[in-house]
């Protein structure tokens, strides 16, 4: 595990290039929902994928997992490179072998993501049996071991419980146990704590951090909440309206954002003592739905720095900005944006 981290020169574990995902629209055509998304996740690295709800984070994650088809969509262009392999043209059979030992995903709704009709032990064991070829007994032992690893008390008893006997936070732990049971190289966590209480949220994040230290798994952490990301990730990708608005190192992005949207997201982080739900109050309006993205910069109708005639006519490219960042803003070099200091 540590040796993985050490190989700094090694190619990234995951690399998407110009990934475009489309879903069918009522008119009978296909609407792009995610467009030309490129990013990398290195070995053992934690990368955050942030953006308001509806910006395309989940769809991007599912595309990496090869699950867009399941949801009725399709990957219309671009590539997904994982561990030296090109995945977009992979036959479904090989995909299935990759999900589990290669990459695993946990979801926003842990309770609904577990099958109510089978015990949690059964659901953990079935991946292990399929992918690692364990027999029934060994798989059960592995399930107990994993439940113990995610700090579920009395794992040996609880392994035979059904999901309805677990709370939301405990269900998320079970989900993590299930995914980690196959020793994946990449863990995608899609808003793993959004549905949970604040206190529980903190403990799940702590668990993820510990697991990552122990196993060296790479993490793609999806969240709409930059505050959560600050403690966990080295790299941040900000998505808006289906495309990457800005990406770079966490430290840089927090301190000195290069895109007005990122700056707005940062300003919306609740300050201590001022906890409220006034999320994104600093950005007026709401995110446009796929198919109704405005011309020019997709953010222009909400942007405090827009320049009429320019921002609404030319679609900006993702261009280098600052030491290690990239931003999709025409005026990025002309404007001074507010960041935050991370404790």
């Amino acid at each position: 595990m540590t040796e993985r981290q050490q190989e700094t020169e090694a190619p990234p574990l995951l690399e998407t290039r110009d990934l475009t995902v489309e879903f069918p629209n009522p008119a009978g055509g296909w609407t792009p929902v995610v467009q030309q998304v490129s990013f990398t996740v290195g070995q053992g690295e934690s990368v955050a994928l942030v953006g308001e709800s509806g910006s395309g984070k989940t769809v991007t994650s599912l595309a990496v997992m090869g699950l867009t088809g399941v949801m009725g969509g399709r990957v219309a262009g671009g590539s997904v490179h994982f561990d030296g392999r090109e995945l977009t043209a992979l036959p479904e059979r090989e995909w299935r072998g990759l999900r589990g030992p290669g990459m695993g995903m946990i979801f926003q709704q842990p309770i609904r993501s577990l099958n109510p009709a089978f015990t949690v032990g059964d659901q953990i064991a079935e991946s292990v049996r399929r992918h690692l070829g364990f027999n029934r007994k060994a798989a059960r032992a592995r399930a107990i071991e994993m439940l113990d690893l995610v700090q579920i008390p009395r794992a040996a008893e609880r392994v035979d419980d059904y999901p309805h006997a677990f709370s939301g936070g405990m269900c998320q732990r079970v989900m993590i146990a299930m995914v980690m049971a196959c020793n994946p190289r990449l863990l995608i966590a899609d808003e793993p704590t959004t549905a949970l209480d604040v206190t529980v949220q903190e403990r799940i994040l702590q668990l993820l951090r510990e697991l990552q230290e122990q196993t060296g798994v790479s993490l793609l952490f999806v969240s709409h909440d930059l505050a959560v990301v600050a403690e966990l990730c080295q790299k941040v990708i900000v998505m808006y309206a289906g495309e990457v608005a800005e990406q770079g190192t966490a430290a840089d992005i927090f301190l000195r954002p290069r895109h007005p949207y990122t700056s707005g997201l940062l300003a919306a982080i609740p300050k201590p003592g001022l906890r409220s739900d006034r999320r994104l109050e600093s950005i007026p309006g709401s995110i446009p739905a796929p198919g109704s993205w405005p011309a020019g910069c997709r953010f222009h109708d909400r942007c405090p720095h827009r320049e009429p005639g320019r921002c609404d006519s030319r679609h900006p490219d993702l261009t280098p900005a600052g030491p290690a960042n990239e931003a999709r803003c025409l005026r990025t070099s002309e404007i001074e944006l507010q960041g935050v200091t991370v404790a």
Binding site: M65, L67, V70, M71, W95, R96, G97, L98, R99, G100, P101, G104, M105, F107, Q109, R112, S113, L114, N115, P116, E126, S127, R130, H131, M175, M178, V179
Partner: peptide, 13 residues
């Protein structure tokens, strides 16, 4: 349902 998506994400047949 979500648990079916999860089952697919586990690489089940």
């Amino acid at each position: 349902s979500d648990y079916i998506l999860n089952a697919q994400a586990k690489g089940l047949s």
